[in-house]
Design a protein around this nucleic acid. Structure first.
Length: 586
RNA sequence: GGGGCUGUGGCGCAAUUGGUUAGCGCACCAGACUGUCGAUCUGGGGGUUGCGAGUUCGAUUCUCGUCAGCCUCGCCA
């Protein structure tokens, strides 16, 4: 192109005064004073003020916001009184000698301002304008930085980047697969990977030894603020390792990311809590430890309580737990009702509560409780006058989960979370199996390739005591990644399949290729996968994954930019040997 | 599939117990202006209040349905 830039719009300083330069960029703001006009030129790197005299440069008067132009001119130091210390380029002007319009722009549907309040759907439909806004572009830069640091650290540690297929065999296990029909094999389909799990394990059998990949994964499930149908994982796997080796690598990478992107010092090794401890202390397997309010056990005193809800819960094999909200006695009835609604959302029948006043316990269920309960509340929960105490009674899971969510509710609504802090921790010792009550069967907590630590019992027996080197990385209360030490012996893999009710024939059909690989000298191995989008979302302090994805999908799964998904042409169906019932047009 | 919130010029918002011509800021268009920096000043154009029914003399406002967006439970690591 002619008039190619010699500098970017963020570059020129007083030192450049007197130089003849060319800038390319977008017209940001135009301040026309008749005899002189100021045009702020913008690109990814910043803004530079261009000064033009419309008498000598008539085309300057034609300019509109978002036009793309080239300006040839001389850099001049501004008169002292006109310097702008707020802007990096605020000490100079570019005095335009000539100006070329490289492209015009329609009037954009919204303005390119840093603090745009435009509704998100429209921003995403016009992402090419939205991303000209600094904060949006900044999130993308942050994401790029994270990817760069990851690659650098992994290469430094001797990892090999290997790409795995996007078109692969479908598997009905886990999340729903996206299906891609095959033209060459009519009636047959590929599935898009939910993760490269079996490929990376196969790479260990290949002898790759240390593998990593930043890869796209796909899951055809309902979306959430932190869930997109396609997302990016940092996937890694290592041979001849134990859990600690995996932790060490991830810790090194995460420390580097937090340090270089946020300037935040994370100390390694990260704290570790077992799944059981996380559940009993915080009522959740991904605790936000940036605030207190730990849950405590009241089952022993509750078992002899006058309060039949408490006694009943314990007698039927359940538990009673408590949570103290310091200063919570000031909560209104409405605020308590809101907390109760949270508990109910998560399966609790209700939320028992009481307030501690200078005159002693008051309100809620206080009149049903006795000295033993009050003593336990004060001793174990540290409750004092002015506090609110809430209780969860029921099964172990329900009582703790409900209280855990009420705890998070208080954390947010009472502003208890120290946002300046970043807590990275490992949750370990997950059970390998969980009971699926609806389908009346055991299923894998993580996935069925995780190695049990204990000898497996006979099929049909209770598996709840079986644990694994199965771990999650949790950051600020978000689950960022999950991994495990895998099964590497075929006979052990077969035994797990048996417990999960997967027949030999079924296993051979779905995973036969992988089982064959295990048969030929698979090394012990393990790894983890981290959600890259979620990491960037936390770093950017965003409420939505959409903020850190260039072209994200809406909650309905629709791409607002391209309007996908869309109906294919009839010929496309035909070529695939497919047809679809016409959608209800009425 | 369930629950909640939202929908008014291009964008962001307002409109009293249901009331007469739906208002404001920004943007847009035209004009003025030699030092602005989210310039300023003057004037102007632009709306089937998401859509459809209903209640009413009268609906942006009330009811029902529907569509869309967001959050969420289920689902999903």
């Amino acid at each position: 192109m002619e008039n190619q830039r010699t500098h970017t719009c963020g570059e020129l300083r007083s030192d450049h005064a007197g130089e003849r330069v060319v800038l390319n960029g977008w017209v940001d703001t135009i301040r026309d004073h008749g005899g002189v006009m100021f045009v702020e030129l913008r690109d990814r790197y910043g803004f530079t003020q261009v000064i033009a005299d419309p008498g000598q440069l008539p085309e300057a008067g034609e300019l509109k916001p978002e036009w793309v132009i080239a300006v040839v001119g001389t850099v001049q130091l501004r008169p002292e009184e006109n310097r702008n210390a707020e802007k990096p380029t605020g000490h100079i002007d570019l005095h335009a000698e000539s100006l070329e319009v490289l492209n015009r722009s329609k009037v954009p549907p919204f303005e390119v301002e840093p603090d745009s309040t435009t509704r998100e759907e429209l921003r995403l439909e016009y992402r090419f304008i939205d991303m000209r806004r600094r904060p949006v572009l900044r999130a993308m830069e942050m994401r790029s930085d994270v990817a760069r640091i990851i690659r650098r650290e992994f290469f430094d540690l001797g990892f090999m980047d290997v790409e795995t297929p996007i078109l692969m065999k479908t598997s009905p296990e886990g999340a729903r697969d996206f299906i891609v029909p095959s033209r060459l094999h009519m009636g047959q389909v590929y599935g898009l990977p939910q993760s490269p799990q079996l490929f990376k394990q196969t790479l260990m059998v290949c002898g790759v030894d240390r593998y990593f990949q930043i890869c796209k994964c796909f899951r055809d499930e309902d979306l959430r603020a932190d869930r997109q149908p396609e997302f990016t994982q940092l996937d890694m796997e290592m041979s001849f390792v134990c859990q600690d080796d995996v932790f060490k690598v991830i810790e090194q990478v995460m420390v580097a990311i937090y340090k270089e992107v946020l300037g935040y010092e994370v100390s390694a090794p990260f704290p570790r809590v077992t799944y059981g401890d996380a559940m009993t202390r915080w009522g959740i397997d991904k605790p936000d430890t940036r605030f207190g309010l730990e849950i405590f056990d009241l089952s022993d005193v509750a078992s002899s309580s006058e309060f039949k809800v408490f006694r009943g819960a314990v007698e039927s094999g359940g538990t009673v737990r408590g949570l103290v909200l310091p200063g919570g006695a000031e909560l209104t009835r409405k605020q308590i009702d809101e907390a109760e609604a949270v508990a109910k959302d998560y399966g609790a029948r209700g939320l028992a509560w009481l307030k501690l006043t200078d005159e002693g316990p008051a309100g809620g269920i206080s009149k049903f409780l006795g000295e033993a309960e009050f003593a336990a509340i004060a001793e174990r929960g540290g409750a004092k006058a002015g506090d609110l105490v809430v209780f969860g009674a029921g099964t172990w899971t329900t009582a703790l989960t409900a209280l855990g969510q009420v705890r998070l509710h208080f954390g947010k609504t009472r502003d208890l979370i120290d946002k300046s802090r970043h807590d990275l921790l490992w949750v370990t010792d997950f059970p390998l199996f969980q009971w699926n009550a609806e389908e009346n069967r055991w299923q894998a907590m993580h996935h069925m390739f995780t190695a049990p630590r204990q000898e497996l019992p006979e099929p049909g027996e209770d598996l709840s005591g079986i644990t694994a080197d199965l771990y999650d990385l949790v950051i600020d209360g978000s689950e960022i990644g999950s991994g495990s030490i895998r099964i590497h012996r075929p006979e052990e893999q077969a035994r797990v399949f048996e417990h999960l009710g997967i027949s030999e024939a079924e296993a051979a059909d779905k995973f036969g290729w992988f089982l064959r690989a295990l048969d030929y000298g698979a090394p012990p191995h393990g790894g983890i996968a981290l959600g890259l989008d979620r990491i960037v979302m936390l770093l950017a302090d965003s409420a939505s994954l959409r903020d850190v994805i260039a072209f994200p999908k809406l909650a309905s799964g629709v791409c607002p930019l391209t309007q996908s998904p869309s109906r294919p042409d009839a010929s496309q169906w035909e070529e695939l040997g497919l047809d679809v019932a016409a959608p209800d047009e009425s």
